[in-house]
């Protein structure tokens, strides 16, 4: 069971209030689409939930524990943040897919890595391909795969399909939907994509510094 609670959270930077008094509660299997105008703080909210930035007011709880008190490294393994135009690091794809193992003090499992690549429609020999040789779409697929190798409890997707071709989009979403159905993880997805917004049943709107959630019961 996973429960993520955002309680009266606010974020200020250099004296400017980005948003305030945002509260919501998420449980296993919830899929929330986050919408709102650019620069409204959607991305900041996701980074704050990931512990990559700290909120200046309120609290965030994972399974009733205040995120500020949890060991931050373990927390980020469970609450995984993926961004648009993923930056790959190191020299090869392998360097990127090794990190999730190294973070968990595990030996990288090549079979799992190859299975992951294949799920993303990339051939096995891409493991040793230089990151500089990848196309934008391939880079994003490897980027997202890093977040999926060890299924997190909460997956934070920050416009991960913006600017991608239809095929890459489909491959990435298929992988995420499969994982969501299997592991019942919580997904928070920021998007500007009309189609995605139209399909969404659970929408969180961040606008004018406030958050409003609208949940359509599907049955």
């Amino acid at each position: 069971m996973t429960k993520l609670v955002v309680d009266q959270a606010g974020y200020q930077v250099e004296g400017r209030q980005i948003w305030h008094d945002i509260s919501f509660e998420l449980h296993d299997g919830d899929w929330v689409t986050v919408v709102g105008p650019s620069g409204g703080g959607k991305s900041t909210l996701l980074k704050a939930i990931a512990g990559l930035q700290d909120i200046t007011e309120g609290h965030i709880f994972l399974n009733d524990e205040d995120v500020m008190r949890l060991p931050i490294g373990d927390y980020r393994q469970q609450v995984s943040y993926a961004t648009q135009s993923a930056q790959l690091f190191g020299e090869t794809v392998r360097d990127n897919l090794d990190l999730p193992y190294l973070v968990r003090q595990q030996t990288p499992n090549e079979q799992q890595q190859i299975a992951g690549l294949e799920q993303m429609d990339l051939p096995a020999d891409y493991l040793d391909k230089a990151v500089t040789e990848l196309s934008g779409g391939e880079r994003q697929r490897v980027g997202v795969l890093r977040n999926l190798l060890f299924p997190p409890k909460v997956l934070l997707l920050d416009e991960i399909s913006t600017g991608l071709d239809a095929e890459t989009k489909q491959v990435i979403w298929r992988a995420i939907h499969a994982l969501h159905a299997r592991e019942r993880l919580i997904v928070l997805s920021v998007t500007h994509d009309e189609g995605e917004i139209a399909d969404a049943q659970d929408i969180l709107t961040i606008q004018n510094g406030e958050g409003a959630r609208r949940h359509e019961q599907s049955n």
């Binding site: 990931a50 990559l52 490294g73 373990d74 927390y75 980020r76 393994q77 995984s80 943040y81 993926a82 961004t83 993923a86 930056q87 790959l88 690091f89 990190l99 999730p100 190294l102 973070v103 968990r104 980027g143 890093r146 977040n147």
Partner: peptide, 15 residues
Amino acid sequence: GQVFERLALGASPKL
């Protein structure tokens, strides 16, 4: 950007 991505995946500053 690369450092940020590593941190986001749970890496320690050292890693």
